[in-house]
Design a protein around this nucleic acid. Structure first.
Length: 428
RNA sequence: GCGAUAGUAGCUCAGUCGGUUAGAGCGCCUGGUUGUGGCCCAGGAGGUCGUGGGUUCGAGUCCCAUCUUUCGCCCCA
């Protein structure tokens, strides 16, 4: 039997999946809520290729990151190009911003994306080799803290809209280009006497990227003893961060400042944040993001500033309440008896579907009993019973599966009567 | 890449010390008299016990290998 590749999975309709966190209607529900928010906040959708030139991610994400150094699906195309399945989407969006010279059209560009990303990681709860992200980016001349605050506001609104209650927002600033060397210098100075006893990763990071040591879980006691990097921010970066905090306060958005929060992508500057949920297990980040003022230039574009975030749809789907989303069951099922009724039913569903009603009909003619069973299994809200006596009398029976009540539909006015009854409740 | 778990029916699982035709619940199909779902009752279909090798008179059960799952480390969404 051919199955899904390692650590990938099918997202299925609810009736085919016991694993609620892999049911498509939950993903659709989250996407719908997100799209509605993006519309209100003025974000337009962008769809970038699922693969790009490898160089884009190497330069954009950073060669020192885990993602680029060991998690990318990279292959050589026939013409010799090195191509890579996108491990994240921000670099692609910035690439598109540059390629299409968007800065010439609008001072501030607001884009969002929805789609699969690929990283060759070992699977685990909430982590897959093909996973889905929704993200948004604000790109332009301005690095006004109001942008940071508005994006965070929007994303926290989404968290609330989909019904996630126990999420915590963590906030930090990783500083600007001038702050970074101060962090590194401080960390090297403080850790010089202790580094030989720290873990292998930290010893390597000590040389290559000292900031990442803050992320270490093994030597967290040593890390906890370090001075806060927030004290080392340049005036500009500090002021920016304080303003973001003030703007969030004004909106009534609560957050926890975590000076050890370091993100694994190299492009972040100043504001970084993530939202975690206690109910996720070890991979507890629901979403993450921040500011990346150097990325456009790094990729050969203008010196545009940027702010963005990505949320893990798979993890959202695990966290939203049990009954979220509409499984798409029929509004009405037609139980037909006999050849004449069957042919009539085929035309009736066409009319109902044109009116926006989810009408179902079985292609086999069967007993009324098994038709009713099927309607029950399909979770149809109503059953229209169409048999010989109904056709003869012009009085059709419409049964509510919820309360077992039955009413009569007249053959002359059937479409209106049914739409009124079935469609009216639909709107509720 | 490292560590740990598990793999028996569509699903969730039981299966004793190695010993006859491998079980249960749920689901599915059929029936319980005329054209009415759920509840109940009866019957039925469905399994190379992940795969390959080995030990043995005999392997779902023991050994080795391999694949896959899940969870943790790492890292991220």
């Amino acid at each position: 039997m051919i199955t899904t590749p390692k650590y990938t999975r099918d997202l299925l309709p609810a009736e085919f999946s016991n694993d609620t966190s892999a049911q498509v209607h939950r993903f659709q529900f989250i996407e719908e809520r997100a799209r509605d928010l993006f519309r209100r906040y003025g974000f337009k959708e962008i769809r970038t290729p699922i693969f790009e030139h490898t160089e884009l991610f190497a330069r954009g994400v950073g060669t020192e990151t885990d993602i680029v150094s060991k998690e990318m699906y990279t292959w050589k195309d026939i013409n010799g190009d090195s191509l890579t399945l996108r491990p994240e989407n921000t670099a692609s969006v910035i690439r598109a911003y540059i390629q299409h010279k968007m800065w010439g059209q609008a001072e501030t560009v607001k884009l969002f994306y929805v789609g699969p990303q690929f990283r060759r990681e070992r699977g685990q709860k909430g982590r897959f080799r093909q996973f889905y992200q929704i993200g948004a980016e604000v790109i332009g001349n301005s690095d006004n803290p109001a942008i940071d605050a508005e994006c965070i506001e929007m994303i926290m609104q989404l968290v609330a809209d989909v019904g996630i209650g126990n999420a915590e927002l963590r906030l930090n600033s990783v500083g600007d280009a001038e702050s970074r060397p101060r962090f590194a210098e401080m960390i090297r100075r403080e850790l010089a006497p202790k580094i030989s006893s720290m873990c292998g990763d930290c010893q390597r990071r000590y040389e290559t990227n000292p900031l990442r040591i803050l992320d270490c879980k093994l030597d967290h006691e040593v890390v906890a003893g370090l001075p806060s990097t927030l004290d080392l921010l340049t005036d500009d970066a500090r002021q920016h961060f304080e303003t973001v905090c003030r703007y969030l306060d004004a909106r009534g958005i609560s957050y926890k400042i975590d000076s050890r929060l370091v993100r694994g992508l190299d492009y972040y500057t100043k504001t970084v944040f993530e939202v975690v949920s206690g109910s996720l297990g070890s991979q507890n980040a629901l979403l993450g993001g921040g500011r990346y003022d150097g990325l456009s230039k790094e990729l050969g574009g203008p010196a545009a500033k940027g702010f963005g975030f990505a949320l893990g749809l798979d993890r959202f789907a695990m966290t939203i309440p049990e009954n979220s989303g509409d499984q798409g069951n029929p509004d009405l099922y037609i139980a037909h008896l006999g050849a004449a009724a069957f042919e009539r039913a085929l035309v009736l569903v066409q009319g109902l579907r044109k009116k926006g009603i989810a009408a179902a009909v079985d292609f086999e003619t069967r007993s009324l009993k098994s038709s009713m069973k099927l309607a029950d299994k399909l979770k149809a809200r109503y059953v229209l019973i169409l048999g010989e006596s109904e056709l003869a009398s012009g009085q059709w029976a419409l049964r509510s599966m919820k309360d077992s009540s039955q009413s009569t539909i007249s053959a002359e006015n059937w479409l209106e009567e049914i739409t009124n009854l079935v469609g009216a409740e639909e709107a509720v």
